[in-house]
Simulated scan of single mutants.
Amino acid sequence: MNDMQLESNQPRNPDFDDDLVIWSDDYTGRYSPVVYGQQFDDQWRLFLEQKRGFRDHTGVETSDPYIDDRIFELTGVRGVLERRRLGALYPLIRQWRRYFGMEKRRNVGGRLYLKPSFPLEYFEGKRCLDIGCGAGRWTKTLGALGARVKSVDVSEHALRSTRRFNPDTDRLDIFDIPSRPELHQAFDFTLCWGVVMCTHDPLRAFENVASTVAPGGSLYVMVYAPTYHSSEAVRNMRRQFHRECRTIEEKMDFVFKVAEDADNAINYMDMLNTFYNWTIPEDVVHEWFRKAGFTDVVTLNKEEPHNAAWHVLGCKGT
């Protein structure tokens, strides 16, 4: 089946067909699923092939310095892995990297501003689920903090990447969670980063994700906010991408053309390539948490400049 046939068989797209980009729960049940396993697979493959724009990026890299950045974003503590490995040399190595601009280089893709921070020991011994693990950066981060992590994704190349350091990986569509009873209320901490808004029904996707959290456990969800991702600039880019790009080569050419920094190409591919690209109002996300039985619901990135997403955490009632 060629690309044109695939395109003609696609369901209605809320943005392109109905001029809808900001999610409302009134839309639940209105749209149909697509083949989700194909949407992110190319970017994880390009990462594994170490193509420019898909490596050395906060969204994919799993080397110790990048994982230490992720640990710092979660906990506010610097150099956890590298201090273990380098000992007293760590301050000198960090100073050397800063002098040669290597610390700044690790900012490609952006940094997180999360408050309150998690205590450093928060994840120690916890059974965690990483839904939509991608290249595995959060799986490796949680593991480095002492968690026992199960990593799931629909992308084969994502699973290949994550299996490099976590054997407990599994192919899973988020909408198949109801048929997987071993996942229900099984985890102390579930992380779902950038997944539910890229589905045909974010409300149902969230409910499935929330069902994996054990009583007393926590859920961390990241979704796009109705800011940058619902702007006309992004919507126009997505329309052009989906109407004009048929092959991976054409898609690559397009993202390198529109990316302000060629080393940030993966962010553009991630944003443009999905069929669904909802943005979710903050109050809607909080209401999802409350209806699913979560308390102490907090938006962790209130102080983030140029906020393009919501990072929301809640604790499931016992």
Rank of each mutant, 00 (worst) to 15 (best):
Y66S: 02
R148F: 03
Q240C: 10
V21D: 07
T295M: 10
M269C: 00
D263E: 15
I174D: 13
G216V: 11
F165E: 10
A259H: 10
L92Y: 08
K126T: 12
S63Q: 06
P119W: 05
W288P: 01
A262D: 14
G29Q: 07
G101L: 13
V35N: 14
A158V: 02
R290T: 08
W138V: 13
G317I: 13
T247G: 07
F187A: 05
L159R: 11
F100D: 00
D153I: 07
R180M: 08
L145D: 08
V152Q: 09
W23T: 06
F189K: 07
H229G: 07
I67Q: 06
G146A: 06
Y99E: 03
A205K: 08
S151Y: 10
R94Q: 14
T28M: 06
L6G: 09
R78E: 12
R180V: 09
M4W: 01
T139E: 01
G146R: 12
D261C: 01
S8P: 00
M4G: 00
A210L: 08
D253I: 00
T212D: 01
E103P: 03
Y276R: 13
D56Y: 10
T62E: 01
M222G: 01
G37T: 02
A214Q: 10
D25K: 06
K51T: 00
K291I: 05
R12H: 09
M271W: 08
L203K: 15
E304V: 00
R171V: 04
Y36P: 00
K316P: 08
N166M: 01
Q10S: 07
R52K: 09
I131M: 14
H57W: 08
W310K: 03
N2F: 06
R97C: 08
H242E: 04
A158N: 05
D170N: 00
V209C: 11
C198Y: 12
E61V: 02
L183F: 13
G143N: 13
H184K: 15
R127F: 01
F187T: 07
R204W: 02
C315V: 15
G109H: 03
R171M: 12
V213H: 11
P181G: 06
A292L: 12
D270S: 06
I93K: 13
G293S: 08
F275N: 07
L114G: 01
A265V: 06
V35K: 15
S231R: 03
D18Q: 07
S8F: 04
K291G: 04
L114T: 03
Q240I: 10
H157Y: 15
P11H: 05
F100Y: 14
D25Y: 02
L219T: 06
C315A: 14
